[in-house]
């Protein structure tokens, strides 16, 4: 009786272990799986694709009956410029908030702020898109007297708001990881709080803060719905932040539903997907290596 019970226990133990192992490696399977399927859909077109023209040409005319053109140069510039402007806004705000939460505010404020910032992260991106269309756009028109309110700045503001939460939480973790003995050392020498932050904490946590910024960048580049709704979605190389732009992500989202499966246009959209995947992969990998760098010290 007891020995039978024993084998049963052993079996279920094995089964659970196998299940947990499967859960553990499933993430790897999914990542490779997604990459494989996206790449498979786009791959056939690679044969008649001029990579230089694909990456650098700014004419994106996929629906032309006579000579369709598949140049994503303007889309790359669109994605990168929106992200850059977004980061110019989000980095000071995000890191500033992280410093405030970690070093300057009391415990109650800290808890409240963290909850509110997490709420900010929980707002669906399509809702951000609404905000862009109905609030930000008239605001921009009235403030800057621009002809159109759905433009690069609008999208960048939304992306900034969306990537601030991740920067705050990762940045705060990085500051929290600085040993308290450094703070005591600085304070006991008579440093003010700002001197302590500026001269001790920022240098000591710079890798973590950089990782926070990079994760924010990753978030911003990959974002689709909000930029689709708020950037104006017009293919061009922008010359000012009030120009409408179109991003890689928004192009896929807007056009994929209208192509026939297996057509050239369809395949090119998948290749754009591969391109995006590569960009975010590089950004995330860099962030990861930077974080590893901190742990080593």
């Amino acid at each position: 009786m007891t020995s039978k019970r024993g084998t049963l226990d052993l079996l279920s133990e094995r089964a659970i272990e196998a299940l947990i192992r499967l859960c553990g490696i499933s993430a790897i399977l999914f990542v490779f799986g997604i990459f494989f399927f996206v790449f498979r859909e786009g791959a056939p077109f690679l044969r008649h694709l001029d990579l230089g023209e694909f990456l650098f040409s700014k004419s994106w005319i996929p629906t032309s009956q006579t000579v369709p053109k598949y140049g994503v140069g303007a889309l790359i510039v669109g994605s990168l410029s929106v992200t850059a402007v977004a980061m110019a806004i989000a980095v000071p705000f995000g890191l500033g908030a992280a410093v405030f939460i970690s070093e300057f505010c009391g415990r109650k404020t800290k808890e409240t702020l963290k909850i509110v910032i997490e709420l900010l992260a929980a707002i669906p991106s399509v809702v951000w898109g609404f905000v862009g269309l109905s609030v930000m756009s008239p605001l921009l028109i009235n403030t800057f007297h621009t002809p159109i309110g759905v433009n690069m700045l609008n999208g960048a503001l939304l992306l900034a708001l969306m990537s601030v939460p991740i920067m705050v939480s990762i940045g705060e973790d990085a500051l929290k990881a600085v040993p308290d003995s450094f703070r005591e050392a600085a304070i006991a020498l008579g440093a003010t709080r700002w001197q302590m932050v500026y001269r001790v904490l920022l240098p000591a946590s710079k890798n973590g803060l950089l990782a926070a910024v990079l994760l924010g960048v990753g978030r911003a580049i990959g974002e689709t719905m909000a930029v689709l709704m708020a950037t104006g979605h017009s293919v061009r190389i922008p010359t000012s932040i009030f120009d409408p732009v179109r991003t890689l992500t928004a192009t896929i989202a807007a056009e994929l539903g209208e192509t026939s499966k297996g057509s050239d246009h369809y395949q090119v959209l998948f290749l754009i997907g591969v391109l995006l995947f590569t960009i975010t992969f590089i950004v995330n990998l860099t962030a990861d290596l930077v974080v590893k760098g901190i742990r080593k010290q």
Partner: peptide, 14 residues
């Protein structure tokens, strides 16, 4: 704190 310096239990150079 400028007048009164402090040395801690664990050395804590910055």
């Amino acid at each position: 704190r400028k007048q009164v310096g402090m040395v801690f239990q664990r050395p804590n150079p910055l």
